[in-house]
Amino acid sequence: MIRVMPCKSNKLHTLFLLSLLMIMGSSAAYAGKPVFELQIRNHLFEPSTLSIPANTKIKLLVHNTDKTPEEFESYELNREKVILGGQKAVIFIGPLPPGKYPFFGEFNPKTAQGEIIAE
């Protein structure tokens, strides 16, 4: 075990570094993304429908104005993020093909519902 451990972690270390470099490159290319804002108020998303450009990476700013935390979740967008009460969260979305992408607040799924429309 002891003999193999450094070998394994070295491999992963380089893998991790490589992916890190790749990431740096890719983020630089996406600099200057359009920003969209969403608010959570009284367990509701405002606005509940958000139109964004298709095939473009956007930066979504979600501001939770409630005292309680909320989890932004979307199976269609493959996103999940806990947003504490009174906090602003950054979520990157896209580039998306045109279509409707529902999202919801996992802690209040019956009221906190919304939709992103890529067009």
């Binding site: 990431i23 890719s26 983020s27 990476k57 930066k59 269609e76 493959n78």
Partner: peptide
């Protein structure tokens, strides 16, 4: 990877949808 994509550290995409 999902988290890193969400943070825009890795590129996004979709291969299939089996929902």
């Amino acid at each position: 990877c999902k988290m890193l994509i969400q943070a825009d550290w890795l590129p996004d995409g979709q291969v299939w949808d089996s929902s």
